[in-house]
Design a protein around this nucleic acid. Structure first.
Lengths: 169, 169
DNA sequence: GGAATATAATTCGTACACGATATAATCGCA
DNA sequence: TGCGATTATATCGTGTACGAATTATATTCC
């Protein structure tokens, strides 16, 4: 293995960290709030895996399908707003779902910039196959419905706070 | 600015507590517990972005560094267990951190199968630069420390439940 | 002591995920 | 009315993330 001397060190951009705050003790990874979300999110994906394999979808693809089952005929940007994804993520993902025959993508005649995404009959039909998934997931969490709803609200509120903080920094 | 033109949803069902519904089969995306985690996790990444750009790390790279700051001289598998990542994810990531001069990777003479990962002086030094990050994140969450700890514990417990469910399927 | 097995890391192929850039279509306003 | 700014999507490059197959080493058990 050749010894790399490139060493692209930290960019000399302005440091957004406060410089005079006394630092707290270093937290173990497991105690970081962000890490618990990171790990829990991966754990969700792993629980979904066998259920989604059965209907031939990945987890992000499933989220797009749920969004379309909820409301058909959405734009790429609309789906992106809902799921928090960029068009650079969605375009290839939607092309794969189109290749699977689950939806169609076509430019809106009224505004050629916009691509409208519509479920195919097959995409509609898949909904029935996916119907039992949410309760399987709920069971895997070990939570009752009330706790799950409470936690979902708390996490969504946290997301809002984080996005507000990220938006204006 | 949302791109919706069609059908203002007349349904006043903003509250996702439909306990009369037999199964959470047709839940909107936003109400899925898994989605709230998925979205919150992305939101955390976005909040971290400017802070980590300043020290030249990505978010998963930062987690690896935190794990090493907590305990130096770990194996690839050990880090993977802690972070819940496969070696196929870690190997290239660790090679990038090595290329940055933050750590070294070398086979253990006592067992040539394992690779020991050790911080370099530069990697140790970076710790000081990163000390103030956790409190910046806490501030962005809008939570006080007690709430953050409580939520972290709840989410970690959920992760454990999910992993147990995924493990024996 | 050596074959069968198990383990640790790497490689490979596929699929997100994002920022920067490109391209095309529409809008805004002088 | 025209043309610069804005908007919607697509493309490109980099970096996760995982499962399957591979390689090399260590352990088991006969």
């Amino acid at each position: 293995m050749p010894h790399d001397t490139a060493k692209p060190t930290a960019a000399p951009t302005e440091n957004p960290l406060p410089t005079d705050v006394p630092a707290p003790a270093l937290m173990p990874v497991d105690d970081l709030l962000c890490f618990s979300f990171y790990a829990a999110s991966h754990a969700f994906t792993r629980v979904y895996k066998p259920l989604l394999d059965a209907i031939g979808l990945t987890y992000p693809q499933y989220l797009v399908m749920v969004a379309l089952w909820e409301k058909d005929d959405q734009t790429v940007g609309g789906i992106g707003d809902k799921l928090g994804l960029e068009s650079s993520t969605l375009t290839p993902l939607l092309k794969r779902l189109e290749a699977l025959g689950l939806l169609s993508r076509s430019r809106d005649p009224a505004d050629e910039r916009v691509v409208r995404v519509r479920l195919s009959d097959q995409g509609e039909a898949l909904r029935a196959q996916a119907r039992k998934i949410p309760e399987c997931i709920l069971k895997a969490t070990g939570l009752d419905l009330a706790d799950a709803v409470r936690l979902q609200k708390e996490v969504s509120a946290l997301r809002d706070a984080l996005e507000k903080a990220a938006g204006k920094s």
